[in-house]
Design a binder for these strands. Structure first.
Length: 517
RNA sequence: GAAUCGGUAGCUCAGCUGGUAGAGCAACGGCCUUUUAAGCCGUGGGUCGAGGGUUCGAACCCCUCCCGAUUCACCA
């Protein structure tokens, strides 16, 4: 970053429309109208009225008598002014409802000088009135009182949705520029209501998972984000500095090692929804900060964890869609239990015809070359196998699938397989061609763990930036004894992408990372 | 980091082999008391992403840079 500070926000020159709207603020105050009052008594949302409209509608709107009164608040999204009466669409958090406002209902001054002259699309207003159906059978609130709640001084995009002859919805002037949608998510949410729906679903995913873990009696905990030693995953960290301690700290890349300390401490099950940070590239699938849930359960192994995950994700699909089947792009993905469980070597053999079990590093290297996979001499056995899997198998796994039993070289925190030499008890859940979870029977043999860390340290010394550091405190913890434990990390962003049929991680993050404007 | 495509009014977009910018919606002034992309008449609005170059003349051609999307590479 240079001298010219990109954090500063010099006020840009304003458009004609902004100038006009600012002037309206002065005019409103001259009319003794507060453009920014303090509260409003909202009795109904648009959705509550529309869901039960028969109980609200009066058939004699010109003589409403004791028809039910409603007050709603929201944003003016469209306007149709016809002289002495007008229609406008009011959008609140639950949807939209049409409002009909007449000069002779709200008063000449209020209608002519305030409503007609001062209201812009985007303004937040409150309406009190009663409900009727128009000639074209649209349920509409007839306003008896109108109030400004917040005057907008910046024009918002004005998309228009209409049904064509075939009954299809066509949107004109939709707000589609992705850069602006991400940078100004607030505008995106105002004019693209399905965006709000995506984020509601994301929260529903988290809540469904949290509820299930709570029902099982697992404890939701919080562990440090600022860590003196980062670990628990293979990734490059962000570094920051603590002034008072005069030491560098890392933003966590995973919370695994802290959660396992808590299992040592005596909890049977702990979980944390955690923002993790990895100093790597951005893409459709990667944001520098992302969310995982990690869960550790004592006295269980990875077989149990597969059962648990199936059940949890099936619940999520049902909660969001009322079905185990979810449409993602061109695929129908079915999360109904049980999911196939395929050992990694078997998955590779099924796809390529090569059985890697018992093969030497050199033999696997040659197989990779024969499959036209980009490999080099520096790659270890585990890395080579991972490359082969990634290139030949992973993207083909559309339906949820557990890939089990990984090479020990790639898994320094997982326990050796109880029967298969050279492998660990680890699985990844793959769905729509992408990993959505990673889990193992946790390594609780402290001597073995120390050796694995030392191997990582050798890799780090050889220049592997993603190799783990030896975490002496973590070793000390498991030297005190950690019970047999199953652990899992589930990527919430990836899961949300699948469950909401989003093709970019940016669509499931409110504020994806962007370069400064 | 590389390649491709893109950045023109508040929004969505035109703009030909170079002749200093247009449309619809939005805004502004009128008319209009059941409209719904409301309609009709009229008006204004632009650092054409930024900077340099070529040219009599650049939104357009050339160079550099900024921002974004997509694909690829690393990664969850």
């Amino acid at each position: 970053m240079t001298e010219n500070n990109s954090m500063s926000n010099a006020e840009p020159s304003i458009s004609e429309q902004q100038a006009i709207r600012k002037e309206k603020l002065n005019q409103l105050r001259e009319l003794n109208v507060n453009p920014y009052p303090y509260s409003y008594d909202v009795t109904h949302t648009s959705a509550e009225i529309l869901a039960d409209e028969d109980s609200y509608i009066t058939t004699t709107p010109d003589e409403p008598g004791d028809a039910k009164r409603v007050s709603v608040a929201g944003r003016v999204m469209t306007r149709r002014i016809m002289g002495k009466a007008s229609f406008f669409t009011l959008q609140d958090s639950k949807g939209t409802i049409q409002v009909y406002i007449r000069r002779d209902d709200v008063g000449v001054e209020e209608y002519n000088k305030v409503f007609k002259k001062m209201v812009d699309i985007g303004d937040i207003v409150g309406i009190k009135g009663y409900v009727f159906k128009t000639g074209t059978k649209e349920t509409t609130i007839r306003a008896e009182e109108f109030e400004f709640l917040s005057k907008t001084i910046r024009p918002i995009p004005t998309p228009k949705e209409v049904e064509n002859e075939d009954g299809e919805k066509v949107t004109y002037d939709a707000f589609t520029d992705k850069e602006q949608r991400y940078r100004q998510r607030y505008v995106d949410m105002i004019v693209n209501p399905d965006v709000r729906d995506t984020f509601r679903k994301r929260t529903q995913i988290v809540q469904t998972m949290r509820n299930m873990m709570n029902e099982r009696g697992y404890l939701e905990v919080e562990t440090p984000i600022l860590q003196p030693i980062y670990g628990g995953a293979a990734a490059k960290p962000f570094v920051t500095h603590h002034n008072a301690l005069d030491m560098d700290l890392y933003l966590r890349i995973a919370n695994e090692l802290y959660l396992k300390r808590l299992i040592v401490g005596g909890f049977d099950g702990v979980y944390e929804f955690s923002k993790d940070f990895r100093n790597e590239g951005l893409s459709r699938f990667h944001n520098p900060e992302f969310t995982q849930v990690e869960l550790y359960v004592a006295y269980k192994d990875y077989n149990w964890m597969m059962d648990f995950m199936e059940e949890m994700i099936e619940k999520v699909a049902l909660a969001l869609h009322g079905s185990t089947t979810v449409t993602v792009g061109e695929n129908e993905i079915n999360f109904e239990r049980p999911w196939p469980r395929i050992p990694m070597y078997e998955a590779i053999e099924n796809e390529t015809g090569h059985d890697l079990s018992g093969k030497t590093t050199e033999e696997i290297f040659d197989i990779a070359k024969s499959l036209h996979i980009d490999v080099d001499e520096s790659m270890g056995k585990g890395k080579l196998i991972d490359e082969i899997f990634g290139e030949t198998v992973e993207h083909k796994l559309i339906q949820p699938t557990f890939i089990t039993d990984y090479p020990i070289e790639m898994s320094p925190l997982a326990k050796k397989h109880r029967t298969k030499e050279g492998l660990v008890e680890r699985f990844e859940a793959v769905c729509n061609g992408k990993e959505i979870a990673n889990a193992f029977t946790e390594l609780n043999d402290p001597v073995d763990q120390r050796e694995r860390f030392e191997e990582q340290a050798r890799l780090k010394a050889d220049g592997d930036e993603e190799a783990m550091a030896v975490d002496e405190d973590f070793l000390r913890a498991i030297e005190y004894g950690m019970p047999p434990t199953a652990g899992i990390g589930i990527g919430i962003d990836r899961l949300a992408m699948i469950m909401t049929n989003s093709d970019s991680i940016r669509d499931v993050l409110f504020f994806p990372q962007m370069r400064p404007e």
